[in-house]
Design a protein around this nucleic acid. Structure first.
Length: 378
DNA sequence: AACAGGGGCAACCGCTTGCCG
DNA sequence: TCGGCAAGCGGTTGCCCCTGT
């Protein structure tokens, strides 16, 4: 059955011959492809326009990289897939020279198997039931010890790491309603640990004096006791800090992502959403759910005293302060591996912005499903 | 050397989306 | 507003090649 665009034509199917490739390349480079349905006719090919388009996009385009995927590309795919799911075209946009088809094939033939071998569900990036039972088989006192959930993509090999990531954004791709766990923060989660220098490139601060003492920390003089959060993009050598009290951000890679409504990259709406969200996360104060519609924050206490916050965008607007993370089938994005550090990927701030923008829209009274919007906007 | 099985990848199929008259 | 068309996109198929027996 041919395509509707060429159903009346006798078209060839199957693999392309070098002669056909040559004809197509010659025509496209000379005339372009303003109308694919007209291309085969003008190029002298017995193919349908759709087939020509596919051949050009997936194989003949001069800007294609081809060849095996690098470790860096693999990490990028895993990171972005964790957020977007099987949206291959979107993922491919983060990999210059790669096509969605190529990414999809690489995922299905390689990455998926690696994740499964590591005990992770390739769809959700969560632990597979078998691994989960192993993980939770003990007393569960130390959530990060030998825990595959702390997997950081690193050259395609699983790294069971000590949790150095202070901040994780989680996105339940197609999660149904899930429970939330509200636990009173333990006394040890005092402001003394609010300043978290992260060797992986991310820093969150609360106490400005301590934050200012950290070399290179983007101390904000107006950040009076508020939460200041810094992203370092070591690939681009850029840095962005966000002052959640003032709902602003400063400098760097935020600015050169397209479509941002203000010069600082983050919109005011987003800043407000994050401000309250983060304030709730750090202070465990009650937060008006309408401010962060569909967002949930949980924060496990990491062994070395770091505080890991998880922003979970889900159906219900619940702010949780403290306690262990309950695995409810959520996808998790390790921001540190995204925004900097040895495992940094090209997955840039644009993704987070687009996610965060929605959070801002929630502030404005959006009634849409937060998670859906998060995903779709990405 | 021959064969079977599996993996990888190019191409196809069909649904969705966007544009235009 | 609606319908037609083209392009975009993700899932699936099928061929080719490699490897193990």
């Amino acid at each position: 059955m041919g395509h509707h665009c060429c159903s009346k034509q006798m078209v060839k199917r199957g693999l392309w011959s070098p002669e056909e490739d040559e004809k197509l390349v010659k025509y496209i480079t000379t005339h372009g492809h303003s109308c694919w349905s007209a291309v085969p006719k003008h190029a002298g090919l017995q193919r349908c326009g759709k087939s020509c388009r596919l051949r050009w996009i997936n194989y003949l385009r001069p800007d294609l990289k081809r060849g095996t995927f690098s470790d860096h590309e693999e990490r990028t795919i895993i990171d972005v897939h964790r957020i977007l799911g099987n949206r291959w075209a979107q993922i491919a946009k983060h990999l210059p020279g790669r096509t969605d088809n190529e990414v999809k094939n690489f995922w299905n033939s390689c990455i998926k198997k690696k994740l499964i071998a590591q005990g992770l569900d390739p769809k959700t990036h969560n632990l597979l039931p078998a691994s989960r039972s192993l993980l939770h088989g003990g007393n569960g006192a130390n959530p990060s010890s030998n825990n595959p959930a702390q997997f950081h993509s690193n050259g395609g090999a699983a790294v069971v790491s000590v949790a150095t990531t202070p901040f994780t954004i989680s996105s339940p791709t197609k999660a149904a309603a899930y429970d939330t766990v509200t636990v009173t923060p333990p006394p040890e989660m005092a402001p003394t640990m609010y300043d978290v220098p992260n060797p992986n490139g991310m820093l969150m601060g609360h106490d400005q004096a301590a934050a200012a003492a950290i070399p290179g920390y983007p101390y904000h003089p107006d950040n009076s006791g508020g939460v200041l959060m810094s992203f370092r993009d070591q690939n681009a050598g850029l840095q962005t800090s966000m002052d959640f009290v003032n709902g602003s951000s400063s400098s760097s890679s935020m600015d050169h992502a397209a479509g941002m409504p203000n010069g600082n990259g983050f919109s005011q709406g987003m800043g407000a959403a994050f401000m309250d969200l983060t304030a709730g996360m750090w202070t465990t104060a009650a937060v008006d759910s309408a401010m962060c519609a569909g967002m949930e924050v949980v924060q496990p206490l990491l062994p070395q005293g770091l505080l890991q916050g998880e922003v979970v965008v889900g159906r219900q607007a619940v702010m949780n302060g403290g306690g262990a993370v309950a695995d409810k089938g959520m996808d998790m994005m390790d921001v540190s591996s995204v925004y900097g550090g040895a495992g940094a990927t090209t997955f840039d701030l644009e993704l987070m912005e687009s996610c965060a923008l929605f959070c801002g829209s929630g502030v404005g009274g959006s009634t849409g499903n937060a998670m859906e919007q998060l995903q779709w906007d990405c």
